[in-house]
Design a protein around this nucleic acid. Structure first.
Lengths: 214, 214
DNA sequence: ACAATCTGTGAAGAATATTTCACAACTCTC
DNA sequence: GAGAGTTGTGAAATATTCTTCACAGATTGT
């Protein structure tokens, strides 16, 4: 499925030009003439990317941005303005915009910005997908959480060292939990049987840290 | 404990001026004269905020930024430059900077930017702290995860409606799980006994969505 | 090669978590 | 206020997970 883009601009001519350029480049494009219309459209359908003119009657781009980010946190946003200043640009980015385009722009500038931003979004979706069910049921156990945290901290660690660090005398007990962590795809082993985090495990740890205080 | 700030600038005079200003404002400040030194310092000690000059011999600010973000993802960053352009500012923000300051700046501009950025960091730490143990052991159960997701989707929902949505015929079973979710602080009830997400629950849901594809 | 340690398996028993059931207060509507 | 539906409690039965134990191949150091 082609990436869905929403173009929001009150200037009909510019709006239609942008739609045309992006459509020809192979994107699926929808247009909205105001911030209000954009939010309504976003409520009905998800978009990968939203292009917003900063200056519009009614809701301005600046005002739409936080509303949009709340409603569709995963949508990427490129702000467009004729009055570009460092302050405005920084402010827009601080508020959650992903890029910033100055009018007038060339066709190439638009396409480059759009492609780059979509590419970033695609990267973030990562190659692997995490199976929430196995991950959560696995981490429902406190000892397994401890093991995961320890492996994350030590980077690579051997079986018996995990047991010693956590004060577990029965290694077969450790093995039981370690196996579940392996099955859930959270930890793996290198060629020397050292235990280490998989990318999935790394991501879970990141998320955990963020959950705790971030 | 006062917030820890790291100032990175090769220009000794400006560096010491910034340290002085920030120290007098009550912050705990450390200085580094180069990108390399900054990264080494960050490895030894965490900082809430790092101020980096864009242009330095050796590692430039642009080069330090991604390294720093990898090493200390939770540190906030303010980039400082004498050659401010919209493009440079946008680029720095895209790469993970949290604010952007143009030289020469007034004392007030520096303090405002620093305070605002730290305030944002503080807000993100939120008022409540999540008890990872109870949260995870609670969400170890698939049915409870389903309930949490349903409550998140519906915003507020009544007891029996949860049961019907999930096709659970025995309401006392529902009650068992709902109670555990309440005990874990993930869901609450309003005055009419509608179930709804607590802030903690909201945060967990956000994190979950992000884990799945973000 | 030998001993010592490490890494692993599977099955039975022990401990927890979950479901079911009997029961009841409460809140609507009529 | 009677009846229907809602929201709840606690204890016993059941299912699941966890621990322990007996055993064994692999690896390492000497």
């Amino acid at each position: 499925m082609a990436p869905e883009i929403l173009v929001v601009d009150d200037d009909r001519e510019l709006r239609e030009t942008m739609v045309e350029i992006l459509s020809e480049a192979g994107f699926t494009v929808t247009a909205a003439a105001s911030g209000e219309e954009a939010l309504a459209t976003l409520a009905r359908q998800p978009f990968a990317l939203v292009l917003i003119d900063m200056i519009m009657p009614g809701l301005s781009g600046q005002e739409v941005l936080p509303l949009l980010k709340r409603q569709a946190p995963r949508a990427k946003v490129i702000m467009i303005t004729a009055f570009a200043t460092v302050e405005n640009a920084v402010e827009a980015m601080r508020r959650g915009a992903d890029d910033y385009l100055t009018k007038p722009f060339k066709v190439d500038e638009l396409l480059t910005a759009v492609r780059r931003t979509l590419e970033e979004a695609r990267l973030r979706e990562c190659g692997f997908s995490i199976d929430m069910d196995s991950t959560f049921s696995c981490l429902g156990n406190a000892l397994r959480r401890e093991i995961l945290k320890l492996v994350a901290r030590e980077q690579r660690i051997r079986f018996m060292d995990i047991a010693r660090h956590l004060g577990i005398e029965d290694h077969t007990k450790m093995n039981f939990h370690l196996k579940l962590l392996r099955d859930a795809g959270l930890v793996g082993q290198d060629e020397r049987k050292n235990y280490l985090l998989t990318p999935e495990g790394q991501r879970v740890i990141d998320c955990l840290g963020q959950l705790q205080q971030g």
